[in-house]
């Protein structure tokens, strides 16, 4: 009987595939949220597997804040073309035009405008009833209690105290007209699992994940690449000057908006290096994502409001 066993990655993969197929069978108009990061890349591969030999029967949607790294836009367009997927790009253009920026509004309000508002608007506009997201439960404490199928009210809000129990592999996909569901097929994956899977599957990634020498300015423990200084600090509030520039080997552990994503010192130039680094890591992945640090419960607050 020992031949009927699967590695942990294979088991996680089968679970995710089961969930994706269940969503396509139960919902009318699903979409996969695409943030161009490693978790999205993993989700796409799982979707390819779930519906092979066909193409996955839903579009990808990138909620663009306008603050993503140029490498991400370039990679996004190329990758979507390579796999023959349909891409929808949506933004809160009004807020972008007004110059919404974390240094002007605060991180929370900026996220609320450029991400949450844009996402909810896009879901309503296209009439999506289910949206796949790449969030994992190991990322953050409040996410540890998230379900695979997370029901949101008509305002996209999450009510952590009123979640549906999920038993066995039986998912309740029933909702009323105005509600929608966020689906998290990677719930049980950890950062290490994702990297191992990327290696095993040879999944293409944005090069920002790999270390190289970059001109940077360090501020309060956060490393900002010099070339993006104007995007991080458009009004020169931080008073950073060019003589603070250091050349350091660094990479991005997770990818978000330029103003809120710092690099980390690292010499990891290959997937194996990164896996080694993740295993050794004593710092959590989202730590360089400024959005989680505002208050001890900030992610939970955002989720309640409809962010992921």
């Amino acid at each position: 009987m020992s031949s009927y066993t699967m590695t942990h990655l294979k088991q996680l993969e089968q679970e995710s595939i089961h969930i994706m197929r269940e969503v396509v069978a139960e919902f009318k108009n699903p979409v996969m949220l695409y943030s161009v990061g490693k978790d999205s890349a993993t989700m796409i591969r799982l979707a390819q597997k779930a519906f092979h030999p066909g193409k996955f029967p839903f579009p990808l949607m990138h909620v663009d804040t306008g603050y993503k790294f140029p490498e991400m836009y370039e990679f996004r367009d190329r990758h979507v073309k390579d796999i023959g997927a349909r891409l929808i790009v949506e933004s809160n253009q009004e807020a972008i035009d007004k110059g919404t920026h974390p240094s002007r509004l605060g991180n929370d309000k900026c996220c609320q405008q450029l991400k949450t508002h844009a996402l909810l608007g896009a879901i309503a506009k296209h009439g999506f009833d289910a949206a796949f997201g790449g969030a994992r439960r190991d990322e953050e404490k409040s996410r540890a209690k998230e379900r695979f199928f997370s029901v949101r009210d008509e305002f996209g809000q999450w009510d952590p105290k009123n979640q549906r129990p999920e038993l066995w592999n039986l998912y309740n996909a029933d909702i009323d007209g105005k509600e929608s569901v966020r689906i998290f097929p990677l719930s049980n994956w950890t950062e290490l699992d994702v990297w191992q899977y990327i290696k095993l599957e040879n999944i293409p990634l944005v090069p920002l994940y790999f270390s190289r020498m970059r001109k940077t300015i360090e501020m309060g423990g956060i490393i900002i690449p010099h070339e993006y200084l104007d995007t991080v600090d458009p009004d020169g509030k931080l008073g950073l000057t060019d003589d603070q520039i250091q050349e350091v080997a660094c990479r991005f552990r997770s990818l978000g908006c330029i103003p809120c994503t710092g690099a980390v010192r690292s010499t990891a130039t290959s997937i194996d290096d990164i896996i080694q680094e993740v295993v050794d890591a004593r710092r959590s992945e989202r730590e360089n994502r400024i959005i989680d640090l505002t208050s001890d419960s900030s992610m939970e607050q955002k989720k309640r409001e409809g962010y992921f």
Binding site: T5, M6, T7, H8, L9, Q11, L12, L192, Q196, K199, L200, D272, I275, Q276, V279
Partner: peptide, 10 residues
């Protein structure tokens, strides 16, 4: 030994 890590059970 990264291979061992990839072949873990669950």
């Amino acid at each position: 030994d990264l291979t061992a890590y990839e072949n873990k059970s669950l």
